[in-house]
Write a protein that binds this DNA or RNA. Sequence first.
DNA 1: ATGTCGTGCTGCGCACGA
Length: 262
Amino acid sequence: MTLTVASWNVNSIKARLPNVIEWLEDAKPDVACLQEIKTVDEAFPREEIERLGYNIEAHGQKTYNGVAILSRHPIEDVQARLPGDDEDEQARYLEAVISAETGPVRVASIYLPNGNPAPGPKYDYKLAWMERLYAHAGRLLAYEEPTILAGDYNCIPRDSDCWDMAEWEKDALALPQTRAAFRALKWLGYTEAFEQVDGRGHQYTFYDYQAGRWQKGHGIRIDHLLCSPQAADRLEGVDIQRATRGKPKASDHIPIVGTFAL
DNA sequence: ATGTCGTGCTGCGCACGA
């Protein structure tokens, strides 16, 4: 059996609904982790997506942030919010267990803080959030399950993951501390799916709407699938689905889809 | 290069976040 697990920052589920529906019909991911749904759960366009055969769990808020998990298989043990700060009201983390045919697969939909401008309180929040993710991701490894932490990490891992490092070296997405915190997740025992099966430079998942970035090929790779050993062992391929970015009313992010023998 | 989107209201243009 194969299980495909996708991550896509849709930049508003309501504004993006036609694009999301077309993508679900075309790519047919088994599991889709969405970010920046930008809506409260009550206003999530549930029926339109359920009609395509998906179960839905959402953790949203008004205007900003918001994450969701869509799955063709049953969704269990849903956990919203990243542990470690009860004061944190931003909807950036949703975790659940997917009952795949071969057994349980844990997935999380992650919208990691942007952190700009850096330095400053927003960057402090980003680094603190990454520390909380580190602590939680470490605890998840103890389950020894296939686990996929999918999301918009707002981290450019390597110089070759952007078109021009000179434009990014002082940005919260590429600062050494950001990269170190991302690497720390890997040292825990998580495998970054794209790096594992492909690893080429300049395979971008985000192109800013501004300044004709898409037309110029000026993108960055910031959407990632982090796999526990039990998921990494089953990883067969990763696809960055560039065609979605060229569609009318596209999100500024591109879906990344991992295929697992699960 | 202050360029483009999406949201929501101090609302029919603006501020904010990205």
